[in-house]
Amino acid sequence: MKVLVAVKRVIDYNVKVRVKPDNSGVDLTNIKMAMNPFCEIAVEEAVRLKEKGVASEIIVVSIGPKVAQEQIRTALALGADRGILIETDEEVQSLQAAKLFKAVVDKEQPQLVILGKQAIDSDNNQTGQMLAALAGMGQGTFASEVVVEGDKVNVTREVDGGLMTVALNLPAVVTTDLRLNEPRYASLPNIMKAKKKPLEMTTPADLGVDVAASLKIVKVEEPATRSAGIKVADVAELVEKLKNEAKVI
């Protein structure tokens, strides 16, 4: 079966985030960018499904500026077969991203779509669910285990208080949580091979999707900072402070 994986180019998770002085957003000038960590887990899961003989072809799709080709090439080096970049310089919000992916789903007809549960920039946690709704598919969000059996997929989900397993008719959408797998690193020969794999360029207009957003960012600020308190000498002083000063125990 065909598997479609969506990946997003975001600020590298090791980079310290700085808010622009004019409060218009986060400063991304000359900042190291990388594939969203949850998307890496999505790519890895698709590659494992292919290694198990469940997936026959892995298509990786991204939305972003031309340089987002880098993240698609990374996915190709990890084992995806071909890529699609929906090129736009606009900030695409979750609903519009879901509509773009829906257009790709209509064309490619994958049996499984795997996305990260959220991107570490906007932290929305929406796109996979929205795509599933638009495509009329079932969804296994925050997945820690994915088992394809016949025309169904069983997804174990990380929920508040434990784990929950659902069975979904295929085609279906899965969004990845941290413990689903540990992504591999791309080997140098595979990075070289990835350069020759097909990467199709398209645009929101080609796909007939208007990416105008209904949410406006009014301002972006630094979070309120906590200041350091005091150091206590020993446990006795700590207990005394908690009882008599903070009055929390």
Binding site: S94, L95, G128, Q129, M130, R157
Partner: peptide
């Protein structure tokens, strides 16, 4: 995890954004 799971579907069905 329940709200995060179902509410984006609601937003998509209503063709509006979600504010998370």
């Amino acid at each position: 995890t329940t709200g995060k799971d179902f509410l984006p579907r609601v937003a998509a069905l209503l063709d509006v954004a979600q504010i998370s």
